[in-house]
Design a protein around this nucleic acid. Structure first.
Lengths: 127, 127
DNA sequence: CAGGTAGTGATAATCAATTATCATTCAAGG
DNA sequence: CCTTGAATGATAATTGATTATCACTACCTG
């Protein structure tokens, strides 16, 4: 009856609904708690992430030392918020103007990231 | 005659003239090439960085997964440029307005980082 | 000079993240 | 039922960054 999803699809799907980039470990914990019946292995998570990047479905995002997060490659331009309390990363819509004026002479900019640090809404409420 | 500088001072001094945050390994390579007479050990570099942070002289900067960079704590507000070619990080003066407008409702921002990616002046010339 | 003590370098040990291995399961076809 | 191959999970192995250890030196003080 119901189409059985592969673990790889579960990983991709989870990321597409996450609202922010996630690390392999975050994803693993999330998937284990979500699909109580399905036990997913950390190896499968890493495999799926690697495949997702190879296929162009996922993009690695490096916001901190220590671990790489991943997000869907299909997202429109956005930036990130990193919660100092729960360590989760959140997508932040929009951008700013005049970033070019920061660029030193002789440098060529191909891309940029804006990272906001602070306390996320959940943690603010909880505190 | 000339005051003999401790290795710790060499590390702090190197960082204060670097023009950008450096990792322990970058610093180690830099110091070894600079002070041909003085062989400095990687352990000393790590020790000095840790002490520098404890003393409030240095600040850790995390721009990538993999390694932590350090910069003087005395620098005025600025941001960073990361060269995709040589992987060095450079300080970038200035900031932008209206970052607040990016903040999602319910979130509290305490800090921010703007990271520009591209090719630095040196690498552009070299290519 | 003898006896600290702090600073240092080489390197072993640790640690977290990631990858590789291997045996198992499961579905599809003979 | 038997075979085959892809997907999977447990876990061993690897890797790079960082820290701990330890022996040694230089210097200060009595």
């Amino acid at each position: 009856m119901s189409e059985q999803k592969s673990k790889h699809e579960l990983v991709i799907d989870a990321l597409s609904h996450a609202g922010g980039p996630m690390s392999a470990n975050e994803l693993w914990n999330h998937l284990r708690s979500t699909d109580s019946k399905n036990t997913i292995g950390i190896a499968t998570v890493y495999r799926s992430l690697r495949k997702g990047v190879q296929d162009g479905d996922l993009v690695p995002v490096e916001l901190e030392s220590g671990s790489v997060r991943y997000e869907p490659g299909s997202l429109k331009h956005h930036h990130h918020f990193l919660c100092s309390d729960c360590s989760r990363a959140f997508d932040v819509d929009g951008c700013v103007n005049n970033l070019d004026q920061l660029l030193p002479a002789g440098f060529e900019m191909t891309n940029h990231e804006i990272l906001l640090y602070g306390i996320c809404a959940d943690c603010k409420v909880a505190s």
